[in-house]
Every structure is written in structure tokens, then in C-alpha cells.
Nucleic acid binder design. Structure first.
Length: 326
DNA sequence: AAACAGGGGTTAA
DNA sequence: TTAACCCCTGTT
């Protein structure tokens, strides 16, 4: 069946009985193919887990799926998904409307970027839920990745809704938890009532795991839930990066770095390169010098990589962090 | 064993 | 511009 330009088929998994889909020839979307590992382990997402080499488990829009490549290395396999899901969720989520060849051409301007792209130019830029990226990256401040993962997982299991395998196929297997919405967080997060309703005396109140980030989460959730902050993606996308950043910084716990991550990872704009410690180190080493300030680094990435700065960051960050060329 | 440093930062002074 | 912030983890 042709959906949005892709040949997609659906059948039932012989062992689980769950519906699964095959998206033909996704590897053509980049000269580097479709890199599953690079996509999920490049720091842009928190909640995807490796279940085996080349196969990752995650929850998006209430669907718990496993994602891998077919044995031919060309087709995308999504378990516990239907053709409708492909159209409604996965096409956008995996940025499948974008061929990376022209972007790569524009962004591989030097030897370093060429190596970076050779290494991870098959990683897809995920288009994730705005609120999920928002809360996740608020929690990321001054934290290392394993702990961020722990925090976000706890947040979901405490406040998210239970997600089951495809309901229309009768299976009531618990697959995990959704990311909690702003209403739930505004009303329940880290309040006495919230912890009691989780039935956990060991919950966030007795053992506040997020420390000084707790009030950030609650305040931001309240701003969104109350309507004090209204997400206007079109406006954020069409204004300058500077303005968009400033708008998001109205939210508690959101500074420039977190704002940039949210704008990029929720797919609102692709011209932003979030400056974390790795990016900073990398840019200083290859393009500027040790004394370069954050603002100079930000300006450099905007000028040098232009409207594709987000893709550049995705690819070189992954390369820098795992290959340590610096 | 107990102190220490530092982590994908933001806030308030 | 700078220190303080909560908590966890890995290191002396």
C-alpha cells in the first residue's frame, strides 16, 4: 500500500500475533542509509531502549513499539503498529518526508563534518512530542544521561498512563507508560496528594529525586495547563531563532540550552544547534579556540551551518561523543 | 570510610 | 557576571 510515497505493508507477527508494518526502502532517505542505533542513541531522545542489537523499544502517542531494520537492511520494521499508525504517527516521527542527501551536501563543509557524517549521517532527526521534550530536558539540567533516563522513566511510571499492546487485537499486556501530560503534572507532580494517589510512600515527596528541578516542572506544567503559556508552533517556527528561544524561556527551568533542545527535538525548527558541553568542546577544538564564549559558539553554528544547524548537531554530536576525535 | 567533585543548567542577586 | 541550588555517582 502506498502511503505518503512509501510502500508500506502490514501483517501479523507469527509469534506475538501483534500487527507490524514494513516500510520499504527507508535506507534511500540518506546516502548513509537508515541508522537505527544512531537515531536512538544520539542524545536527542531519552526513552527509547535497546532490546537487542539493532532493535529499540519506545512509546510514542500511546503506541508502544519495537523498531528495527529488516534483514535486507533497507526496510523499516515497526512492531505493534498499523498502516494508520504509519500515516498518523511514524511518518512524521521519523522525519520520513525529508531526504537527507541535499542536507548532507550543504553541511559537510570540512574534514571534520565529513567524518562525522560518514559515521552517523544515517541517524534520523526525530520529531518528538513538545511537552515530552520540554519536561525531559528541564530534568536534564546539570545531570548525566543515565540519571536523566532514570528521572524520566520514574516520571512516566508514576504519572503516565498505562499503555497496553494493540487493544483491538485483544492483548492486554502492559507495555509501559505514556509520558504524563501537563494537566497531570500541574495537579499532581510532587504534591502530597500526587504522591498519595500514586500509592507510593516512597514517591517523589519522601524521596524527591529531581531536587531543585521539581518546582521547575510544576511551575511549567501549571503555566501550560492554565493557559498562561500557549504553544504556537507556527509562530515559533516562523520567527527568528532568537525570538523563539526567548518565548520558551518564559517557562520555569527553561534557559537557552533547554529551549534549544525543545525547539529542535520537537521538530519546530531545524536551524538550531543546542550547545551542551560536548558541542562546546567540539566547536572550540575544530573551529574556534578555548576562550570562545557560549554566545560566540552559538553564533558560529548558526552562521556556519545555517538552516540545517540542527541536523549538523545531531550528526557531529553523535560522532564526537562516541568517537572522541577531540 | 567519609569527604569530594562534577554532571547534556537555570535562577536570582 | 557569579554563586547557589538538589541529588546521584564515581573518585580520593
Amino acid at each position: 500500500m502506498n502511503i505518503k510515497g512509501f510502500n508500506v505493508t502490514q501483517d501479523n507477527c507469527s509469534s506475538t500475533g501483534l500487527p507490524q508494518i514494513f516500510v520499504k526502502d527507508v535506507s534511500d532517505l540518506s546516502p548513509l542509509g537508515f541508522d537505527i542505533r544512531g537515531t536512538f542513541e544520539s542524545g536527542q531522545c531519552i526513552r527509547w531502549k535497546k532490546v537487542e542489537d539493532g532493535k529499540y523499544y519506545g512509546i510514542v502517542k500511546g503506541r508502544a513499539v519495537n523498531v528495527s531494520l529488516f534483514e535486507n537492511g533497507r526496510d523499516l520494521v515497526i512492531e505493534n503498529a498499523t498502516l494508520e499508525d504509519f500515516r498518523d504517527i511514524w511518518f512524521d516521527y521519523f522525519d520520513l518526508g525529508t531526504n537527507y542527501a541535499p542536507i548532507i551536501k550543504e553541511v559537510e563543509k570540512d574534514d571534520f563534518m565529513q567524518s562525522a557524517i560518514r559515521f552517523s549521517g544515517g541517524a534520523r532527526m526525530l520529531v518528538q512530542d513538545f511537552e515530552e521534550t520540554l519536561y525531559s530536558y528541564i530534568l536534564s539540567s546539570q545531570n548525566n544521561i543515565p540519571r536523566i533516563i532514570k528521572l524520566v522513566d520514574s516520571l512516566c511510571s508514576l504519572y503516565g498512563e498505562k499503555i497496553y499492546a494493540y487493544p483491538s487485537f485483544g492483548d492486554k499486556t502492559l507495555m509501559g507508560h505514556s509520558f504524563p501530560d501537563s494537566e497531570t503534572l500541574a495537579l499532581n507532580f510532587c504534591t502530597k496528594e500526587g504522591c498519595e494517589s500514586c500509592g507510593s510512600r516512597n514517591g517523589l515527596c519522601d524521596k524527591p529525586f529531581a531536587g531543585y528541578r521539581c518546582p521547575y516542572i510544576r511551575k511549567t506544567a501549571l503555566m501550560i495547563y492554565s493557559g498562561e503559556f500557549i504553544l504556537d508552533e507556527n509562530h515559533l517556527a516562523s520567527s527568528t531563532a532568537e525570538q523563539a528561544r526567548k518565548e520558551l524561556c518564559r517557562l520555569s527551568g527553561v534557559g537557552e540550552k533547554v529551549a534549544d533542545c525543545v525547539l529542535l527535538y520537537s521538530g519546530i525548527r531545524k536551524d538550531i544547534c543546542p550547545i551542551d558541553v560536548w558541542v562546546e568542546k567540539t566547536i572550540k577544538h575544530f573551529y574556534l579556540d578555548e576562550s570562545a564564549k557560549k554566545s560566540e559558539i552559538r553564533k558560529f553554528t548558526q552562521d556556519y551551518f545555517g538552516k540545517h544547524a540542527g541536523y549538523a548537531q545531531l550528526w557531529f554530536f553523535n560522532y564526537s561523543r562516541t568517537q572522541k576525535p577531540v
